[in-house]
Design a protein around this nucleic acid. Sequence first.
DNA 1: ACCATCTCGACCGATTTTGTCAAGTTATAT
DNA 2: ATATAACTTGACAAAATCGGTCGAGATGGT
Lengths: 144, 144
Amino acid sequence: MISQKAKYALRAIMALAGTKEPVLIGDIAEQENIPKRFLEQILLDLKHQGLVMSRRGRIGGYFLVRPPEDITIGEVLRTIDGPLAPLPCLSKMAYRACDDCDDEATCRVKALFADVAEATRRALDQTTFADAIAKKHPLVRARR
Amino acid sequence: MISQKAKYALRAIMALAGTKEPVLIGDIAEQENIPKRFLEQILLDLKHQGLVMSRRGRIGGYFLVRPPEDITIGEVLRTIDGPLAPLPCLSKMAYRACDDCDDEATCRVKALFADVAEATRRALDQTTFADAIAKKHPLVRARR
DNA sequence: ACCATCTCGACCGATTTTGTCAAGTTATAT
DNA sequence: ATATAACTTGACAAAATCGGTCGAGATGGT
C-alpha cells in the first residue's frame, strides 16, 4: 500500500500536468482536496527531487519540470515513500544491508525476492503519467 | 519494504521446508534468530491461514501443510502484512474503496496503478519457496 | 515597499510496528 | 495418572511511522 502522502503527490502532479503556467498551492489543494499545509511539504519534497519547480511572489506557484510522459510513478514514490524494493538489500537506488543478515550472498530471503523486486521496479519505472491520463476511462483503455 | 514480521515468517517457513517432522518453536527461533514469543504469534497467524499446522505436547511443533513448491511469497505476505496491492481499490483479495475517491471509474490514481498492481501480484503469486531454495547461491541461479 | 507566495523546522496525536509477559490449555511419554 | 514440554490467548508497552498543523521567515513580481 502506498501512503496517503504519496497519493497526494501523484494527484498534485496530475493537477500540474495540464498546464505550463505556475499553479498555486492553494488551487491544487482545493481542486484535489488536499490539506494545504501538508501539500506544501509534499511539493517541497518533489521540488528538492527536481520533479517540479516553483516561482515565488505574486503570480507564483508550482509547475512541472518535465512533460508528464517523462515522469514515472517510481520517481514520485521513491521521493515520498522512500525505497520501493521489498528489502533494503535489493534496492538499486538506496542499497542498504539488512540489519539481521550475516551473509548476503547466501541469504534465502534475498534470493526469494530477487525476481519480485525486479518485476515491481520495472513496472514502476515504466509507467508514466501520460499512461494514466490516456486511460482515464478504463473502458476505453489504450495500449501503449 | 516488507515488515520485519514478514521476514521472520518467511524464514520460519524456510526452516520448516527441510523436514516433515514437527519442529519446535524454540528451535526455529534459535536457528533463525527470531524472538521466540514473537515467533509464536507469527506461526499462529500462519496456522490460522492454513499454511502450517502444529502438534501439541511432547514431540510437538510446527510443520508445513503443503510442500514448499506450492507455497508462494504472496500468500505469506498477505497473511502477515495484509493486502499487497498499492491501493485498496486494486486489491483482488481484499478490495476496499479508497476513502477519498468519489468516482472510482474515472480515478486517475487507480488507472495509473492498474498495470503496476497486476505486475506485482503476478510476481508475488508465482514465486514459490522452491525457487528460493533452488537459487540459494545467486551465482548458480537456475531458471525455472 | 508591499504582500502573496513559497520555505523551513518544530511540533503533535493517532496508529502501526515490534516486541514482552502472564496465565492458561493441551497432548503425550513415562 | 501425571508431570512436563509445548501450544494458545490476550493484555500490555516502547519506539517508529503516518498524517497533519503551526509559526516565523525568506523571496520576488508589481
